[in-house]
Simulated assay, not measured.
Amino acid sequence: MNQNNSCYRLDDPRFRALIQPNARLHQIATGFEWTEGPVWFADHNILLFSDIPADRMIRLTPDGQVSVFRTPSDYSNGNTRDRQGRLVTCQHGTRSVTRTEVDGTRTVLADRYEGKRLNSPNDVIVQSNGAIWFTDPTYGILSDYEGYAAEPEQDRHNVFRIDPRTGSVKAMITDFVQPNGLAFSPDERTLYVAESGSSHDADVPSVIRAFEIGEDGEIISDRVFATIDKGLPDGMRVDSSGHLWSSAADGIHCFHPDGTRLGKILVPEVVANLCFGGPRGNRLYITATTSIYLIAVNAKSAV
């Protein structure tokens, strides 16, 4: 385990209440190809995450013990838990969203929309009512690096919702260049979605958009919530007080619910995603290119 001096950038005095000034950024595991999709399982005291190009999912314990959870993983990317504690995964290889059942089998929740194959589901979250939301950019079919190169069958790169009652798939947001990470506010009235289209087109703004949604997921309004000034937004999480913590090229950017950037946790590798975890829920696990980093914060997950 390597220990580096903490490196905070303070943009607003309110950030002080969310960080531990004496905490250090720990590199707790390294040697991966491209880490993504961290999800904390408190009942097992483990972190699961994807190593996408290596086609595997990794299990990590708090003391830094690493083992393979699943290989091949069908080029898994984003992961989350549903309200029953089951693993829900976006798979580039099968262009699907799956759920791992308690017996270890996998159920396909979505792999087509209007009869056509999805692009490459990227990130996923589960609402308290059981609805599953996921993004569907084309990263997994652009080459053979994170999936299998293929021509897209979908006309757009959508944000989809899987109905908790019927299992039907509906395109809820259809105007993204490349939708990526997504998260709900604590009251679930706001859905945040990252626009990462600048990865291949510099003219696309690196923004996080906020959508006011109704009880059945209908979009009521849409606004730009925040802009990432280094790189682009990828995975993100919301804490119990409504602050949004987003990945970026230089680390983690933390935003107040009003959209003000409060500060940054600077990380020496490009960050893809993050999640809250640890025995007390106040540790931030960071998937950053080839490594996993850990730092204590004064925040816990909204769910």
Rank of each mutant, 00 (worst) to 15 (best):
E212P: 00
Y192F: 15
L182C: 09
F184L: 15
E215Y: 00
G231K: 04
V224M: 08
D201C: 10
V207E: 06
G231C: 07
S185P: 04
Q178I: 08
A194L: 05
V238I: 06
G217P: 05
V177F: 10
S198C: 11
S221D: 14
G197Y: 06
R237L: 03
G231R: 03
I220V: 12
S196R: 13
S206T: 13
D201K: 13
H200V: 10
D239Q: 08
S185I: 15
T227L: 12
I173L: 12
P179L: 01
E195P: 04
I208C: 01
D201R: 14
M172E: 10
I219T: 01
D239R: 08
E195K: 13
V169N: 04
R223L: 01
E215F: 00
A210F: 03
S221H: 02
E218Q: 15
K230P: 01
P233T: 04
Y192W: 11
D234A: 02
F211D: 01
D187N: 15
P205Y: 09
F176I: 11
E212K: 15
F225N: 02
D201P: 04
F211I: 05
Y192C: 09
G235T: 05
I173T: 10
D201E: 08
D187V: 11
D175Q: 12
D201Q: 11
A210G: 00
D222R: 15
F184E: 04
T174K: 14
G235V: 12
E195L: 07
I228F: 02
G231N: 07
D175P: 12
V238G: 08
E188S: 12
K170C: 06
F211N: 01
S206Y: 02
S185M: 12
P179R: 02
I208S: 01
L232F: 10
F225P: 03
D187W: 10
A194N: 07
S221I: 03
D201L: 10
L191R: 05
N180W: 10
I208T: 09
L232N: 08
D239H: 09
L232C: 02
F184I: 13
D175C: 12
R189I: 00
V193E: 11
S196T: 13
S221L: 04
D222H: 15
G231W: 03
V207K: 03
K170S: 07
T190L: 14
N180A: 06
E212C: 05
V177S: 14
A202V: 10
V193F: 05
L182Q: 11
R223V: 06
V238C: 13
T227C: 11
V207T: 11
E218A: 14
K170Y: 02
K230L: 04
G197T: 09
E212Q: 14
D175G: 12
D234K: 03
P233W: 04
I219A: 06
G235E: 02
D175E: 13
Q178F: 07
M172W: 02
V224T: 14
D239V: 10
D222A: 15
M236L: 11
E218I: 07
D187H: 12
L191H: 05
I173D: 04
M172Q: 15
V169S: 06
D201Y: 09
T227E: 14
G235F: 04
S199F: 07
K230M: 11
D203Y: 06
P233Q: 05
M172I: 15
L191Q: 05
I208F: 00
I173P: 13
G197W: 06
T190C: 07
A183C: 08
